[in-house]
Amino acid sequence: MGGSSAVVATTGPRRSPLTTVAWILPGTIWLLLFLIAPLVMIILVSLWERTPVGFAAFSFSLDAYGRIFETSVFLDTLKNTIFRSLLVTALCILIGYPIAFYLARCVKTIKFQIALFIVVLAPFWVAYVVRIIAWLPVLGRQGVINYFLVEVLGVVDEPISALFYSTFAITLALVQLYVLFMVTPIFFQLATLDEAAIEAARDLGATPGKVFREVIFPLSLPGVLIGCIFVFVLVMGEFATVRIIGGGTIQSVGTLVNDYYTIPDLPAAAAAATMLVAVMTVGVAILLRFSKIREVV
């Protein structure tokens, strides 16, 4: 009976519930296997006891959380990571919005739009680690900037160390790595704005500034929000950039998880990861709550 209705459904214009299930199934299985299951596993491991060779499954204890909160290292690092993520997200909006605006509203032909968008994407054709390491010849003690400051301009006597292996360098590199995740959703939002609303505002005598403030910007907010979610979540979980650009002297929750993992203290690594996921979930929930994204979209 179910079989015959499915056959009818695939040939007919309306889908039966069975076909709907068939469409939903692959995605659901995917999410269950690669999102929910690992998450459940991480939470479970964080609650198991540590042994020299990993963990003792199903012997529950909260010791791992006790260990990560035993000193102030984890909490301080978590605070720093949240601050860094918010800072990078804000910088990505400041830099990414004008780029997206220019691409979507100022470039007139679609051909140029696509060409310039590909240019914006260009850094992503280079391997992740290469993009990170490439900052050394720019910001290093013997890098281009220090060369100009010391040799050409003579404004400082000694090369400035704080340009690299520093919080500054990490922030800069993260903005460069992730600004595209801000540009892209804003670009698509701006490119698909309801032109009639803008026309109407102009007809009613609004100045270009006012059109932007009262029509374009509010309508582009869903794109900004999606960008914020991308950048915030990606930076919260970062460890390779922090490790390499920080020269090992600066930590993020990601590098701490990696440290716990290599000690090896797998339950502590899982506990730190669980805390990270919890904070990210709360962060995203706050973003969604305050923006009322569903109403705008």
Partner: peptide, 25 residues
């Protein structure tokens, strides 16, 4: 010492140790 800025970095791989020295860092 670290808070006073003594340490430029902590290297994890052989290559990193080479880069630290050769880049003048």
């Amino acid at each position: 010492l670290k808070k006073a800025g003594q340490f430029r970095g902590f290297w994890a791989t052989f290559d990193e140790s080479v880069n630290f020295m050769s880049s003048g860092e």
